[in-house]
């Protein structure tokens, strides 16, 4: 009996995983070559230690999910910070190409959705309704 229940749950895990890969998170733009390279820069400089994307990551700096589409900040502001750092953020001395790639990565992230869920999207039973981009 124990073996049977385990087998059923194992099968459920495999099926649910496959379903998630295929249908759980569709949508959003495909990355450009620069965005793919920018993601490598993001990881090799360990940006996630301090910054978040969709609220996931470190807590020292701001969430950067929608920094590019921010009407006050935007790509120029992001690039300036990446190039020179701040009092709390080191200057990583990135090349022009790496800066371009990192901005392309953040642009790709931004196009995938909004990090903050507006209050009107909360349903009466406590869940969210989020519109796809």
């Amino acid at each position: 009996m124990v073996k049977r229940i385990f087998a059923v749950l194992l099968l459920a895990y495999i099926c649910y995983s496959a379903f998630i890969y295929a249908y759980g998170a569709e949508g959003g733009a495909k990355p450009t070559a620069d965005a793919v390279a920018g993601q490598s820069v993001w990881q090799s400089k360990n940006c996630q230690a301090c910054h978040q994307l969709y609220g996931l990551g470190g807590y020292m700096g701001p969430d950067l999910t929608n920094i590019i589409s921010d009407t006050i900040k935007g790509p120029v502001y992001a690039e300036a910070f990446i190039r020179s750092g701040t009092a709390r953020m080191p200057n990583f001395h990135l090349s022009d190409q790496e800066v371009k790639e990192l901005v392309a990565f953040l642009t790709w992230v931004d196009k995938s959705g909004k990090s903050r869920v507006p209050a009107e999207n909360v349903t009466w039973y406590g869940s969210y309704k989020i519109d796809k981009q």
Partner: peptide, 15 residues
Amino acid sequence: WFRESFLKEMTIQWK
């Protein structure tokens, strides 16, 4: 294939 969409990327990473 798993990096084709950032949503898929994040979903699988946190799954």
